[in-house]
Simulated scan of single mutants.
Amino acid sequence: MERAVLLCPVCAEPRSGRRCPRCGHDLLPRQRTGPSSPGDDAGGVPLRAGWVAIAQADPDYYEKATTTGDLEAPRVPFPRAWPARYFALNGERAWIGRRGRSRTHRPEIDLGGWPADPGVARLHALLLAVPTGGWVLMDPGSASGTTVNDDPTPVPVDALVPLAAGDRIHLGAWTTIVLQRSGADW
């Protein structure tokens, strides 16, 4: 599948990482604390209402990890019950991870809770909104890595991977997140 080329919003240079090679603009947006102008609910960025991230325990992903030796099945058993979780994607970004003990880090896609996937880091990966209305994935350096669809190669640290509806993000020992547009068959 051919992916769209991402352009720097400042200088329009093609980019493949977190920072623009030409002007140094950082794609990772600063956290906004409120609207930037009256009537502006998203702090200047259109809400991405219409996208949903569906997190689920994936037996096929787990099986591949145990078969290749990336995971020791007896030490990390597959959960018997792990209901799918639905997360609406809004705003500029969505952290994927699990809440820390201090409760100060609250990822928008919180994969904590019982049973917790032991391979998911507190701040494991990041979804960033792009001006065209889609999303890109970035792994800031998680220990167990992140893969997309059927590619076994982990996403390089700070690389930006464009995503489309139906793409599968694999992380941890058994977690798969599927991106869907609202109203699509879940």
Rank of each mutant, 00 (worst) to 15 (best):
L89C: 01
N90R: 11
N90D: 00
N90H: 13
I96A: 06
G97F: 03
G97K: 14
R98N: 02
R98H: 08
R99I: 01
R101P: 07
R101K: 14
S102Y: 15
R103E: 14
H105T: 06
H105W: 11
R106F: 03
E108D: 05
I109C: 04
I109P: 06
D110Q: 07
L111V: 08
L111M: 04
L111H: 04
G112I: 05
G113Q: 06
G113M: 05
G113F: 00
G113P: 00
G113I: 06
W114E: 10
P115V: 13
A116K: 11
D117M: 12
D117V: 15
D117W: 05
G119K: 00
G119E: 02
V120F: 02
R122K: 13
R122C: 12
L123E: 04
L123H: 12
H124F: 03
A125V: 08
L126V: 13
L126H: 05
L126C: 07
L126M: 10
L126F: 02
L127P: 00
A129Y: 02
V130T: 13
V130H: 10
P131Q: 11
G133D: 09
G133K: 05
G134M: 10
G134I: 04
G134F: 12
G134A: 07
W135Y: 01
W135G: 10
V136T: 14
V136Q: 10
M138H: 06
D139L: 00
D139N: 06
D139S: 09
P140I: 01
G141M: 08
A143R: 09
A143I: 08
S144H: 14
T146E: 09
T146Q: 06
T147H: 04
T147C: 13
V148Q: 08
V148I: 13
V148P: 02
D150V: 10
D150L: 05
D151A: 15
D151Q: 01
D151E: 09
P152Q: 05
T153E: 12
V155R: 02
V155W: 10
P156F: 15
D158Y: 09
D158M: 02
A159P: 08
A159V: 03
L160A: 15
L160Y: 11
L160K: 15
V161C: 00
V161D: 04
P162G: 04
P162K: 01
L163W: 10
A164C: 09
A165I: 01
A165S: 15
D167C: 14
D167G: 09
A173Y: 00
A173C: 15
A173Q: 07
W174A: 07
W174K: 05
T175W: 08
T175I: 08
I177R: 13
L179V: 00
L179D: 01
Q180M: 13
Q180F: 12
Q180S: 03
S182G: 14
S182Y: 11
A184V: 12
A184L: 12
